[in-house]
Design a protein around this nucleic acid. Structure first.
Lengths: 345, 345
DNA sequence: CTGAAAGCGCTAACAT
DNA sequence: ATGTTAGCGCTTTCAG
C-alpha cells in the first residue's frame, strides 16, 4: 500500500501512451491501434485496474446511477420489484441505488437529498407519497423541481407532475378477478383491506363496483372493508370484526394484497371455517406469500420482470433525452391456485 | 436550465468569499466568521444547493458509501438486515449501496467490481460464498486483496481471511432451542433442512448432537435431514419424504429457517396431523413469516437492529483506522409462540 | 480567519 | 490514430 495508487496515468506512462488513449480503450469511445490497445489492456489486467467512478462521473457529468426509492423492501412486493429493477439496470450498465423511505416523510426527503447529492441520472419512486389519492401540493412542486433536472419515473400517481408513470393496470386486474369469481358463482363478494386515499385501492374499489353493476349484482356497502394498514394484522383484525358483526358472511373475499389475505385466512381458520369450502379468498400481488400460504392463494400477479424492465427502460430513455411514453400500464395476470371454489356445483 | 449550474464557486462569488470558505461552512471543517457563514448559508438556502458527492469524494478520497452485498433481499431475513444496515449507515452519515448476488458467482463478482469502482469506503458481505464451510481458496485470496485497501465485514465465515466477522451465535441459538424442547419433554427431535457445507447449518448440527449427548438422548442419524435449498419447497419435500419413509415420526422438528418451517407445516397439515398437538415445529430467524404462519411459529430470533448496528459500526470503525473486534457474536433470543407443546402432561 | 492554488482521476474537445 | 490541455466541483495544504 505504500505504492502510488494506480490510475490511468500510471497505466499510460507504463504503456508509453497518453492518458487519453487509456481512457479510450476503457470507454471504447474511439479507435485505438491494436498494438497500443493490447499493451494497455495488459497493464489493466496486470494491475487489476478499474476506473474511479467518481472521477468518471465528475468529468462526464453522468453518474450511471439510478436511484430507487421504495417504501420498505421487507414487503416482498417491493423486494421483488427492487430485485428486478436492479437486474434491469445492471443489464444496461447502470447501478441501482436503493433506499427505503419507511413510509416516513423525513426519511424520504433524506434519501432523496442523498440521491441528489450523488447526482443520480434518474429516479424511480414507488409507493408512499406517490400513491396517495389526493396528491400533496408541496410534494408535487418538489418533485417537479427535481424532475426539472433529473427524469423521475413513478409507480403510482402524482397529479400535475412532470413524472413518467409506469403503473399496474389495477382496473383490469380487478375486472379479471371479479369476472373469475362471478363466473364461479359468487355473488356475495367482499373487498377487504386498504385505505381509500391510496390510489391503487381507490381504483380497485371503483372497478369492483362497476363489475357488480355490469353483472347486475347489488352493491352492499358493508362488503367494502377499509383497514388502516396493508399488513397481516390488518387482515386478521378486519376479518375478526366481520365475524363479530352480524353481517352475512360473503362467499368470497378479495384481499387488497397477499399480506392482508394471510391475516384473513388466519381469522377464517380460527373461526373454524374452511377455505375454499366455506369461503373463497383471493388477493393481489402474487408474491411468494400467495404460494406459501395454506391453502395456496389465487392471486392477481404481474410480470415483475417486465415491470422492472419498463421502469428502468423508461428512466434510461428519459435520461438519454428520448421521449418515452408518459404513462404505461403493466398487464395483470390471474394466477389460479386452491383458495377459491366454484359454488355452483 | 439555461443557467450556470450552481456550485460552490457560484455561491462564493455571490457571497463575496472564496470557494474554500464555502467549503468550510459546508463541512464545518474550520471556523468561519459568523458574518460570512450566515451569508453563505443564506445563498445555499436560496439556491437549494447541495454539494456534488462525486466531486467531494474524488477530492477527499472518501465516498461515504458502504457497500452491502446480500444474496437476495426477497428473503425476509436479508431484507430485514439490509433495512437495519441502511438505518445504521444513515445515522452515521453514510449511504448504503445494496446489491444482490442472487447466489451467483458472476453476479457477485460483477457487483463487487461495481462497488470497487464506486470506491466504497467499506464492504459488508452476507451469505453466499462467505457462508460456505470450506472456504474457496481463490475467493479468499480475492477478498484479502480487497480487504487490503477496503475494510470488509462479513456475516458468515471465510477461513484465513483478513475480514471482520459479525455472526449470529448459532451455537448458543441451537443450545437454547434444544433445551427448550427437551425441557418440554421432547426426545425425538429432528433437525430438518440445509446443507452441511453451509457453515451456519454445520454449526447447528454439531450443537444439536452435543445437546443430545448432554441430556443423554441417543442420536438418530435419520433425524438429521439434509435439503439442497433453504426454501418453502425444500421443507415441504423433505417432510413429505419423511412421511413416505417408515421412519418413526419425531415429536418435534427444528427447521433450519422460517421458510423451510413453512414448507414443513404445509406437509404436516396435508398429512392431517396437527401442530402442535401431534408434532411440534420450531425454526430459526424469526422473520415476519414466523408470525404470519398458522400456527404462529416458535422461532429463534436475533436482535436485527443491533445486528445492523454492529455490522455498520464495525465497518466504520475499521475504515476510520480504529481496530474493531475481529469477531463478534449477536446473541439469539427464543421467541415462543404456538407451534410447540409440552408433551409431558 | 481567509484566500490562492494545487490536486483528486477521469473525459472531452482540440490539435496534430 | 494519438497527444495536449482544460476542465468536472470539491477539499486541502500553505501562506498570510
Amino acid at each position: 500500500m505504500g505504492k502510488e495508487r494506480v490510475s490511468i496515468y500510471r497505466i499510460a506512462k507504463e504503456a508509453g501512451v497518453s492518458p487519453a488513449t487509456v481512457s479510450r480503450v476503457l470507454t471504447h469511445s474511439a479507435n485505438v491501434s491494436d498494438e497500443k490497445r493490447i499493451k494497455v489492456e495488459e497493464l489493466i489486467q496486470k494491475y487489476d485496474f478499474s476506473p474511479n467512478a467518481m472521477a468518471r462521473g465528475l468529468s462526464s457529468t453522468q453518474s450511471k446511477i439510478i436511484g430507487l426509492l421504495a417504501p420498505d423492501i421487507r414487503n416482498p412486493f417491493y423486494a421483488t420489484l427492487a430485485v428486478e429493477c436492479e437486474r434491469a439496470a445492471s443489464e444496461r450498465g447502470y447501478i441501482l441505488l436503493l433506499s427505503n423511505s419507511m413510509n416516513n416523510m423525513d426519511m424520504e426527503e433524506y434519501h432523496l437529498q442523498k440521491m441528489f447529492e450523488q447526482r443520480v441520472d434518474a429516479l424511480i419512486l414507488m409507493g408512499g407519497k406517490v400513491d396517495e389519492f389526493v396528491s400533496d401540493e408541496e410534494y408535487v412542486e418538489k418533485m417537479n423541481q427535481i424532475a426539472d433536472s433529473t427524469p423521475v419515473v413513478i409507480t403510482g400517481k402524482l397529479d400535475g407532475s412532470d413524472c413518467y408513470q409506469v403503473n399496474i393496470d389495477e382496473a383490469q386486474a380487478m375486472d379479471i378477478l371479479m369476472e373469475y369469481l362471478i363466473s364461479n358463482g359468487h355473488q356475495n363478494i367482499c373487498i377487504m383491506g386498504g385505505r381509500k386515499n391510496v390510489n391503487s385501492t381507490y381504483v380497485k374499489r371503483i372497478r369492483y363496483r362497476s363489475s357488480l353493476r355490469k353483472y347486475g349484482i347489488p352493491f352492499r356497502p358493508e362488503y367494502v372493508v377499509e383497514t388502516q394498514g396493508y399488513s397481516v394484522e390488518s387482515g386478521l383484525e378486519a376479518m375478526n370484526e366481520m365475524f363479530d358483526s352480524k353481517i352475512e358472511l360473503p362467499s368470497a373475499i378479495i384481499a387488497i394484497n397477499d399480506f392482508t389475505a394471510l391475516g384473513i385466512v388466519q381469522s377464517i381458520r380460527q373461526h373454524s371455517y374452511r377455505i375454499p369450502e366455506d369461503i373463497s379468498v383471493a388477493s393481489f400481488d402474487n408474491t411468494f406469500i400467495a404460494d406459501a400460504c395454506t391453502p395456496r392463494l389465487t392471486s392477481m400477479g404481474y410480470n415483475y420482470d417486465k415491470f422492472g424492465d419498463a421502469l428502468v427502460e423508461t428512466a434510461i430513455a428519459a435520461l438519454e433525452g428520448k421521449s418515452p411514453l408518459k404513462l404505461q400500464f403493466i398487464p395483470p395476470e390471474l394466477v389460479i391456485r386452491e383458495s377459491c371454489r366454484n359454488i355452483e356445483q
